[in-house]
Each structure stands twice: as C-alpha cells, then as structure tokens.
C-alpha cells in the first residue's frame, strides 16, 4: 500500500515535470479559485490549516474512492502524500500556471469524462475566472465545499473563541499564575488564533 503513491509518482513524473504548477497541489488551485482572486499570495488552506488539517485527509480518501483507476488520480495521490510530508512549499499561482494545469488535466482525464457527470457537476458559480467546473474531477471540489464550514462562520467562531479565551487567560493568570504550564498553553493557543486572524485579514486586504 505504501509503495503505490511512489510508483504513481514515478509514472507521472514525466507528465508533470515542467512548469511552476507541477509543484502544486490541485486543492490550492481550488481554494484560490474559491476566493475569485487568482493572484492571491496566501491560499485559504494556509489560513485554515489547523482547523481543517484533520478533515482534509478523510475527505480526500472519500474522493479517491470515487475517481480510482485514473492515472491522473494516482499522481494526484502522490502529490497529496508529498504535501502531507511537507516536502514542498506552496507557491504563488498565476494565470499561466492555472491554464497550464487545466490543459494538463484536460488531456489526462478528458477522455474519461462522461456526459452525465458533466451535467451533474455543472452548477452555477462565480468562483473562478476559468470555466473549470465542467470537469468531472471538480466534483471533489464541490464535495469539499459542501463539507467545509463557510468562511464567515469560521471567522465568527474564531473571534468568539478568542474573546472567551482571552477572558479565561486573565482568570488563569490571577488564579494559577503566569508561569503555570496551563496558562502558557492557553497563551500559545490565543497567539495561534490571533496569527490566523491576521492571516485572514491579510487575505481579505489583498
């Protein structure tokens, strides 16, 4: 089981050897497309990395089942594993790379696309400047979008949690002291939340 992604990677290495986008995870493309801003520096997955990290693997597992059998899928799996191991960093996606990626996906999966699948995945959307929703593999994108909490709700939750935890931090400090490990743990958590909030603000500012 462990060898499969590696093999798949070898198989597809020539397929995606050149270009900036060859280093990219397909999810980054989706998340960037979701924000309707193709030139964003920070991907959404970066902003919500902590809260969603655990659920991404289960979602992709489900997605793998659906599209099993495609070469493209195997290479995608391999890329995903690489991402999990933090073996590569995220890069900025420009329009050129998006086009390139789209064309490559067309060539690898286009022949397997069924008409009824197309009609199922074709939903009204204003999320992307490209008409990428008509491809079958973007069903995974829609599934991800349906399972994911909407961004304003995440923002609301985090803001509220931050307020609550800040109050709790004051209680901890006065109750068990500034140097207690629980107080420090709480402080770290608050700082992490603040960092995430700042990142999100950075995204919205762009």
């Amino acid at each position: 089981m462990e060898d499969k992604p590696l093999k798949a990677l070898d198989k597809s290495s020539g397929h995606r050897a050149s270009g900036k986008s060859s280093q990219q995870d397909i999810r980054n493309l989706w998340t960037t497309a979701t924000l309707s801003q193709p030139k964003l520096n920070v991907a959404l997955s970066d902003v919500c990395e902590d809260s969603e990290g655990s659920s991404v693997s289960s979602r992709t597992r489900q997605w793998r089942k659906q599209t099993a059998g495609h070469d493209w899928d195997a290479s995608w799996e391999a890329l995903e594993d690489r991402k999990d191991k933090d073996s590569f960093k995220q890069e900025e996606l420009d329009e050129h790379s998006l086009l390139e990626l789209e064309m490559r996906l067309d060539s690898s999966v286009g022949s397997h696309v069924e008409d009824d699948d197309e009609s199922r995945t074709e939903k009204p959307s204003s999320v992307s400047s490209f008409n990428i929703v008509k491809h079958t593999h973007h069903r995974a994108y829609w599934m991800e979008q349906h399972n994911r909490l909407p961004l304003p709700l995440i923002e609301l939750m985090e803001n509220e949690a931050l307020e609550i935890l800040t109050k709790a931090f004051r209680s901890y400090r006065s109750g068990i002291g500034r140097d207690h490990f629980l107080t420090k743990q709480l402080q770290r958590h608050i700082e992490g939340l603040k960092r995430r909030q700042n990142k999100r603000l950075h995204v919205s500012a762009h």
Partner: peptide, 19 residues
C-alpha cells in the same frame, strides 16, 4: 475544539464559565 485549549477533548470549569 477551539475552546479545548489543553487538547483533552474537555472543557474545565474556568473555560466553561467564560464560555
């Protein structure tokens, strides 16, 4: 999970009170 600061899948009385 956002409120579960100590990663114990629980809320103690202080966190619970403030919540």
């Amino acid at each position: 999970h956002l409120l579960d600061v100590h990663r114990k899948n629980t809320l103690n009385d202080v966190l619970f009170y403030h919540f």
